[in-house]
Design a protein around this nucleic acid. Sequence first.
DNA 1: CCTCCCTTTCCTGTTT
DNA 2: TAAACAGGAAAGGGAG
Length: 242
Amino acid sequence: MSVSPSTTLDSQLTTTWGTTNSHPDVPMVMSGYTSRLWPCDTEPQFWSKYQVWEWLQQVLDMHQMDVSSIPFQNFDMDGHQLCSLSYQDFLRAAGSMGPILFQSITELKWSEIYNPLNHPLTPASPNPSSPAIKRSFSCQVKKHNPRGTHLWEFIRDILLNPERNPGLIKWEDRTEGVFRFLKSEAVAQLWGKKKNNSSMTYEKLSRAMRYYYKREILERVDGRRLVYKFGRNARGWRESDK
DNA sequence: CCTCCCTTTCCTGTTT
DNA sequence: TAAACAGGAAAGGGAG
């Protein structure tokens, strides 16, 4: 397909990344509703591929696992497909992480059904069981991460999924964790979209990036514009240790 | 209501 | 000169 330059970028990003508001012409005025629509707030059956992928990242983070622990390509599917996988499917797709993922998605499915607040139209489940399930589960996914993802995780996740990364950021040195922004303003817009902030710019995004130096989530890379490097406190970016 | 944490916003100055 | 980089200062805002 031939994609012409500038104007199509936004729509391209929107269709590739759009989680909930996948219409390029719809402004960012969907208020708090949209920004709250994280995987743990919606029924997994209706997740987009992107949300499936976010869920994988969160489970990994939760268990402090490296991204190499899961072959992401085996989960190139939407929520509907994900929910139809059997325990055996998870074992095949994710090996030792299979059971963890299976448990997570199972709890997710149940917890949504139990919670009438999320989707009033969902037919009530006949199975009461204990409310503790729901609680333990939502803690599991939400962690103590207020808005779902921090900026550095957002950047990392773009890097780790090239097929969803239309030339936005690129590894400079994969093993050292050095990367470069190719389309800084586009990344900023995407970040802004995630935060429901249409006025995000690279200028502002980069200020947040610089705060990461002190926390050693990023290391400074001198003399190279738009180049950053993951630091010792950044998790989940490393290639396999095998 | 308060505090903590992670930005977001703005700004002035420097570097590439 | 434009675009990035550097940080200080302070406001915003969600979570607990």
